[in-house]
Design a protein around this nucleic acid. Structure first.
Lengths: 203, 203, 203, 203
DNA sequence: AATGAATGAGAATTCATTCAT
DNA sequence: CATGAATGAATTCTCATTCAT
């Protein structure tokens, strides 16, 4: 497939500097190079030894992080046995990613794309395709499990199934992002509703 | 309800300056005051006669625009007769908003929120609640029509219905935002699939 | 001929800022933007309102100054009547330009060129040709006067005459630049020797 | 006389690194330490084992090179028999030095001095006097040959002779540095003219 | 002795904001 | 009121120098 880039130790240190800032709640667009340096506990100049500009640094850090998150998410899902467990795991992943300010991930799982992020991401070889296809793999896997478990019974094309899953997942993403508007709904209820909607569309 | 702010002619000129920049594809976070002035065809200083800062200017422009878009969207939907027509109109509104780079709207209809936008929006009286409740109004109206048309037959609570609609709508938002990944799916197919998923969850 | 650029008041202010630094003895290559701003008594940012970079600012300041110096030099020479007076005036101009650290001028009158200066000068439309041809005009004028005064009697081509003058002038430039090596030679003696050598080559 | 410094192998390696950069056309004032290291094929740190700063490194490299050039120039001139041959050899040396971007030498033979170069040169024991007196030695030698050959017949003081030679030589330096302005003059013509002017002043 | 990764002081550049006109 | 030239604080980026290996 698409080969994964190998990064040097220092590059990863810098990436983590960026990620921690975002986890801390810093706005992607107002991060300063000096902040990254401080966060990574290195000199400002070092960043420029490894990347050409602030934009490149942040872009690559995001790609790197999203890919590694994707990998661990993939593993979390694979470990689970049943269709239902796997689906709920996805919802939990979204919940976790939101808590750590890395909503980017779930934001991509839903509608809003990378387009708003640094143009750099588009230019660079740094494939967001890889990211997209990883999500597809997860969806394919989920569907297969669903068929095995006798949950997916409706006859539809692949696009339908992908959208059924993405749609029901997005209801939970929306809930998580706007909890304050749904004071009387707790997380379990939101998850259950998401799952209920999914089941309907797969029967 | 919540009283709508009345803006002066000049304020609206400035708002349109901001909106046109975004329609042009400029990134919300990298817009310069001088860009706004040029786009609105006024002097830079004039902006500061009406707003306290760049952040405030952009924030208020967004709120203003989203509200007016919401109003016209509301009207577009009301004009339609049947549940199906109304739903398809929502999808068309999303499609239009994407074309003009004002994905913000659909981005809010789906999961990702304003949190990433200027903090200012939160502080200011400029209620995004108003925006949120407008969408809710639309959803309520749609559900009522659905019941009248005999399409909504399942017995569920309000949260379920809201999510069913938001979920199916979000599949179309996702499609529109990532058309390049779905080369073999045309807009009609995407709309039909979205509707099909919705129907399933309402039966 | 080559049309002269018209510069705005502020541009000239900036140019003078640069020139004064050089007159003060600052090295062309180590001047800082903040120095220019201070020297011109304006804000740092203003420089960037009028020029694209430090390099462009300094380059254009030099061109501007050399051209204006050339003009005043031309006038100083024209005012003089005889061949001898005109020639001595050239030597005095060199002496003055050296005192004010603007040896650039005499440095160009002699061998070393602009090549060592900012590349920018080469790129830009800013013609150094104009400068070179101005010097040529002076030489032509001097030769004509020399013929009228019966001083130029040898039959040679134009290149010979140009070089005869440039050569003898350069002896004085050299003296001025290295006075400390010629402790027993005063300025008058150096001028007289320069003129004596010139006469020899024109007879 | 002035005792010549003996440099270690590594020091000479570094010097050559600097010289090659200049030969390559790099600007004296914009050379970076890392460039020198790369050019000399050594580590950056090594440079600081032998010199105290970048400035010192470049200054000493220039002195070193100028001295060695002077020595070989001296030898090239000594080998020649007649006044004319010796003079033409000087012109050829200038031509060669220009080709290799080491115009410094001829730049010093003419008017513009080291003053514009690193102050360091002045401070350091590294005598530019030595360099200046070497040129004087050559001029003295040339004059003696000229008298022997019956070319120098005019009765003048030493300063006159020095300037006569420097002046005529500078015409050729100027030509070499500005060939593009003298398209219809070839090198031989420029040399002949230089010599013709010299002869006039020595008769 | 030699290296080059790491540093951070310092320089260039940007742009929100002010204010004289 | 409206303007946009001017500003300088804030930020990006560079590169001489150091020092652990």
């Amino acid at each position: 497939m698409i080969d994964k880039k190998i990064y040097s130790k220092k590059e990863v240190t810098i990436f983590n500097g960026v990620i921690n800032l975002i986890k801390k709640g810093d706005n992607l667009y107002t991060i300063k190079v000096s902040d990254i340096a401080k966060s990574a506990d290195i000199g400002k100049g070092t960043i420029y030894d490894y990347f050409g500009s602030k934009e490149e640094t942040i872009s690559k850090a995001l790609i790197y992080y999203m890919n590694s998150e994707m990998e661990s998410s993939y593993n979390r899902i694979m470990i689970k046995e049943s269709f239902k467990e796997k689906y709920y795991e996805i919802l939990l992943i979204i919940k976790d990613s939101y808590k750590s300010n890395l909503f980017i991930v779930s934001s991509i799982l839903s509608s809003a794309g990378l387009k708003e992020l640094y143009k750099h991401l588009a230019d660079e070889g740094c494939n967001t395709n890889y990211f997209f296809s990883s999500i597809n793999n997860i969806i394919v896997h989920l569907l297969e499990t669903g068929k095995k478990d006798g949950i997916v019974t409706v006859e539809e094309d692949f696009y339908y199934f992908v959208m059924a899953i993405r749609g029901s997942v997005s209801t939970f993403s929306h809930y998580i992002g706007k909890k304050e508007y749904y004071k009387d709904i707790n997380v379990e209820k939101a998850m259950d509703t998401s799952y209920k909607i999914l089941l309907k569309s797969l029967k």
